[in-house]
Design a protein around this nucleic acid. Sequence first.
DNA 1: TAGATTGTTAATCGATTAACAATC
DNA 2: TAGATTGTTAATCGATTAACAATC
Lengths: 223, 223
Amino acid sequence: MTHTPNERIPEGVIERLPLYLGVLIQLRSGGGDTISSARLGELTDINPAQIRRDLTYFGSFGKRGVGYDITTLVERIQRILGADHVHRLALVGAGHLGSAIADYNGLRQHGFHVTAIFDNDPTKIGGHIGDILVQDVDELERIVKDQGIEIGVIAVPPAAAQVAADSLSAAGVRIMLNYTPVIVRVPAEVTLHNTDPVHELLHTLYYFLEDRRRDAHIAEVVI
Amino acid sequence: MTHTPNERIPEGVIERLPLYLGVLIQLRSGGGDTISSARLGELTDINPAQIRRDLTYFGSFGKRGVGYDITTLVERIQRILGADHVHRLALVGAGHLGSAIADYNGLRQHGFHVTAIFDNDPTKIGGHIGDILVQDVDELERIVKDQGIEIGVIAVPPAAAQVAADSLSAAGVRIMLNYTPVIVRVPAEVTLHNTDPVHELLHTLYYFLEDRRRDAHIAEVVI
DNA sequence: TAGATTGTTAATCGATTAACAATC
DNA sequence: TAGATTGTTAATCGATTAACAATC
């Protein structure tokens, strides 16, 4: 074991682990027992050498000549990512986006339990999403503290994003997902992740256009 | 101009451009006229040298000693990303997620027009989301072709994801966003982007836990 | 002219991958 | 033993950043 636990783990590794995990869980439920890095590479479109390299940051989980035991690998990756514990989650915003997130079964499968939902719209407060009560944002700080909620998901209109982030910070939440296009400011102790469908569309569009430009260029050269 | 148009552009650059664009549009609507890379760096948490480097892949848009003209820079980045044209978009899935995307104003601001929405649920077909009619997925291929839709967004339950992708491919869609945890297979000519909230949560959780582990370690050393 | 800030180079840093010895 | 596949090294490749000359 040359593995140094204090070595810095590249960001890319942490982005790929959830991908491996998803495929492995699917394989496990399909009754698979072992898998090679070559096969996992095919299923995820990732270079097998990279998969092996990624895993060795955390230890050696495979058997030479055989491959990786799927169940063991799932457990190891879950432990690495913190998905071996239940994490309570508060949703701010009970609109369509909030509902979509609350209804998404994948969360619970990975230990993320939506425990509270907040909104400021009196017509929504008191209602339910699934079987979770929608509560007043004014109660957020108290309820989040009481229930020991660690994660906040911001699914409100853009204008309300910063306020939501501030309430969550005040309530002691240290992990936030922001589904708003707004750049939200949070204290240093908060780990924040932003997702904006527009960014993803623009990003994808660029690569599509680049392909088309390249094809056009080739056509030109041929003519 | 040392700028070689055929030089390969790093992925990271294309991920940052939409971020710059968002901030610049905000600044423009706030009445700003020029901005320095230093200031833009503060607003986006990105190193100013990197911002300048990123932009020079596409030309030199600034004035030494002055900075960048905001309006010009917005237009340049929009052109680079393809956001200077209207792109028609079809939404597959009229549930909460589909509704959230259809209602999101940011899309239209960047030239993405949701032109058609499809579902297979008879109770949804014939209804409206905003002012867009929900149509039968069986009609997808014909309608997408007729309307010249270029982009497909998959917002269906996981079990229906591959079918949705296949229909979109058959209809000639070359850009897809998959909001499903399923790994969807598409022909080589399709540019696909995947988003899964679970991946984002796991990713964010890891960094949070890492911080906490580091703090614990420091505390240990101090004691 | 003095001050500011870009554009660009070169150095540094980090991530990916090919190759192969270890070993099941 | 022969075949397979990991774990690990070292080479390659690519991205970030500091530094500074160019120039507004």
